[in-house]
């Protein structure tokens, strides 16, 4: 029982670091990519958060970025094995183009998540990565909006990508 909880926590931390780093590197906190993301960013700034973290959360809601890419890589690795990750990258690219987004972040995020799951496959099974990605998205989108946006804004300022 304890070893399962430890695997779940390690998988959650790996997923969190992967999608936050990839999304911040491709400039999601800098500007709202689609017009719906601007509304959510302004609203989060009004309740006491950071505007760059608000743009980050709005961009995740409005188009499938590296967060969706990590979940899809875990799902296809669970169902098909290593080749499934490359199919997931193609499907995420199609979804990005449907939502009128450039689509670099989703594709690169899916490929890096597939490589990370392959490197960890001796110790952690892929279904722990599915639950870990759900926990990671819950800490950003569902727990406390103002505190999460301040954390994301400080990470983006520390990486120099605002």
């Amino acid at each position: 029982m304890e070893i399962e909880v430890i695997k779940l926590i390690i998988a959650s931390i790996i997923c969190w670091i992967n999608f936050v780093v990839v999304d911040t590197y491709f400039g999601l906190p800098k500007k709202p990519g689609v017009s719906g993301a601007e509304v959510i960013g302004k609203k989060i700034e009004k309740i006491g958060g950071n505007i760059n973290g608000g743009y980050f959360m709005g961009n995740i809601v409005c188009s499938p970025d590296a967060s969706a890419g990590t979940l899809m890589a875990a799902i296809f690795y669970y169902a098909m094995g290593f080749e499934g990750g490359l199919i997931a990258a193609l499907l995420i690219f199609i979804g990005n183009r449907l939502c009128n987004d450039p689509g670099y972040a989703g594709t690169i995020g899916t490929i890096t998540a597939t490589i990370l799951i392959y490197l960890c496959s001796g110790f952690i099974e892929p279904q722990y990565f599915i639950a870990g990605m759900v926990i990671a998205i819950f800490t950003i989108q569902g727990f406390h909006h103002a505190y999460a946006s301040k954390l994301l804004g400080s990470i983006a300022k520390k990486m120099g990508r605002i």
Binding site: G36, A68, L91, C99
Partner: peptide, 13 residues
Amino acid sequence: FISSTISSNAIAH
């Protein structure tokens, strides 16, 4: 997942 993302994109717009 992709279809529901398109739906929430339309609501935000």
